[in-house]
Amino acid sequence: MATARPGQFPGDDDFPWWLVALSAIALSLAGVIVANDIYAQVFAVVTKGLGVTILVTLAAFTLATGLGLVLALMALSEHKALRQVARFYTEVIRGVPILVLLFYIAFVGAPALVWLVNAILSPLIEAGHVAAVEVRDLSLMWRAILALTIGYSAFIAEVFRAGIQSVDKGQVEAAKALGLSRVQRFRLVVLPQAIRVILPPLGNDFVAMVKDSSLVSVLGVADITQMGKVYASGSFRFFETYSIVAYVYLVLTIGLSLGLRAIERRLRRSAR
Rank of each mutant, 00 (worst) to 15 (best):
V207G: 03
A232K: 01
G228N: 03
A194W: 10
V207Y: 02
A246N: 00
A222E: 15
T241H: 08
V218T: 13
E240K: 10
F206L: 13
P200M: 10
D205T: 10
V216Q: 00
A194L: 14
Y231V: 05
V230A: 13
Y249N: 07
Q226S: 11
L202A: 04
G203M: 10
A222N: 14
A194V: 13
K211I: 11
A246L: 10
M209G: 06
S214C: 09
A232C: 07
G220L: 06
V248E: 01
T241P: 01
V216I: 13
S213L: 09
V248C: 05
F206Q: 03
A262S: 01
S235Q: 03
V216C: 08
K211E: 03
F238L: 07
L256E: 04
P201I: 13
L260S: 09
F239Y: 02
F206W: 09
Y249A: 05
I244F: 09
I254Q: 11
V210H: 08
F239D: 00
E240A: 04
F238M: 13
A246K: 00
L219C: 02
L202W: 12
T225H: 01
L250E: 02
F239P: 02
G234R: 08
V251C: 15
G220K: 00
Y249V: 11
R196M: 12
K211V: 07
L250F: 15
V207T: 13
L219H: 07
L256G: 01
I224E: 01
M209E: 03
S243G: 12
G203D: 05
A246T: 11
L258S: 00
D223S: 10
T253R: 00
G228T: 09
L199Q: 05
V245I: 14
S217F: 00
S243H: 06
I195G: 12
L250A: 15
V230P: 06
V197C: 04
I244P: 06
R261M: 13
F206D: 04
D205R: 15
I254K: 06
L252H: 09
L202M: 12
